[in-house]
């Protein structure tokens, strides 16, 4: 039975409305804000002037924007690569049967279960100059001076990345692990008969069979990591001296510390362009593969 177009549209309407109201409208509205001189006062009074590309120019001239962009790229790339590698190795491990497996699997999930507010506050203390990590290293006599994990402008982004990797491992692990369970057992049995070693099985069976899952995990992970905000805001608020700003925290501080909503919107638009380019690029790779 062929349904009439009217009914098709009717059923699509709720999701279309949702996308329009919560997806498209904010982006378009943000676009309007980004070309206006919107401050707290002009926002409320509705008197913001059009300034054309001036907000974008100001942002591109601001060294903090470039620092944030650099940080965002480092943070995203390192997080994704290391989370996936560790998540994959853990998934391999848990693909075997061993005692206490269920308990240990639950332990692996802990970072994911904890609210970011809790883990973030914990790491702010853990990584501070007088925090647990430095005291621990000092008690082993490994360091004389505290390592400035989050109080050095050079080190801070790497420390935050490490925390994010820890937080993201369960996400990667669970997706890859579920993917691995879908791989037919017969393939491994056949390989065993052919005398393949463990690594050969991983390289020639697990990885190729897992490819779609790996790509999906990668794309999802990139988008989720690219927009991380809470973790950095709780631990450093983008400090010291703006050295750990990601694009997200930079945009937030422009809006709510400085009340520069126009400039903040411009940063968000630039972020959206990057995400769109990235998703377009990655789906192109997937298409080519098919």
């Amino acid at each position: 039975m062929k349904m009439s177009k009217f009914y098709l549209l009717l059923f699509l309407l709720p999701s279309l409305a949702l996308i329009l109201i919560f997806g498209i409208y904010p982006v378009v509205y943000n676009g309007f804000l980004s070309v206006k001189d919107v401050t707290l006062i002009s926002y409320i009074r509705g008197t913001a002037r059009d300034v054309g590309p001036l907000n974008y120019k100001a942002i591109l001239d601001d060294p903090l924007f470039w620092r944030s962009l650099y940080n965002t790229i480092i943070f995203t790339l390192l997080s994704i690569v290391l989370q996936m590698v560790v998540g994959f190795l853990l998934a391999l491990l848990f693909n075997y049967e061993f005692p206490l497996k269920g308990f240990l699997q639950a332990l692996v999930m802990i970072p994911w279960v904890m609210p970011i507010m809790v883990s973030g506050s914990f790491f702010r203390w853990f990584l501070s100059d007088n925090g647990f990590l430095n005291n621990f290293l000092a008690s082993l006599n490994w360091i004389q001076e505290p390592v400035r994990w989050i109080s050095s402008e050079r080190l801070v982004i790497y420390s935050l990345t490490a925390v994010n990797i820890w937080l993201g491992i369960p996400f990667n692990f669970i997706l890859l692990y579920t993917g691995m369970q879908q791989i037919p057992e017969e393939l491994y049995e056949g390989a065993d008969i052919d005398g393949a070693s463990g690594w050969q099985k991983v390289l020639h069976i697990t990885l190729p069979m897992l490819r779609p899952v790996i790509i999906a995990t990668f794309v999802l992970g990139c988008i989720l990591t690219f927009k991380v905000f809470d973790l950095v805001w709780i631990i450093t608020k983008g400090g010291p001296g703006g050295a750990s700003h990601l694009l997200s925290t930079f945009s937030y501080s422009l809006a709510f510390d400085r009340f520069q909503f126009g400039k903040s919107a411009a940063v968000l638009i630039l972020m959206q362009i990057i995400v769109v380019l990235f998703v377009g690029f990655s789906s192109r790779i997937r298409l080519e593969e098919r």
């Binding site: 400035r148 109080s151 402008e153 010291p240 001296g241 050295a243």
Partner: peptide
């Protein structure tokens, strides 16, 4: 910002 940059010797 400037205060933090100075305190961290950036």
């Amino acid at each position: 910002l400037a205060l933090q940059r100075s305190l961290t010797e950036t």
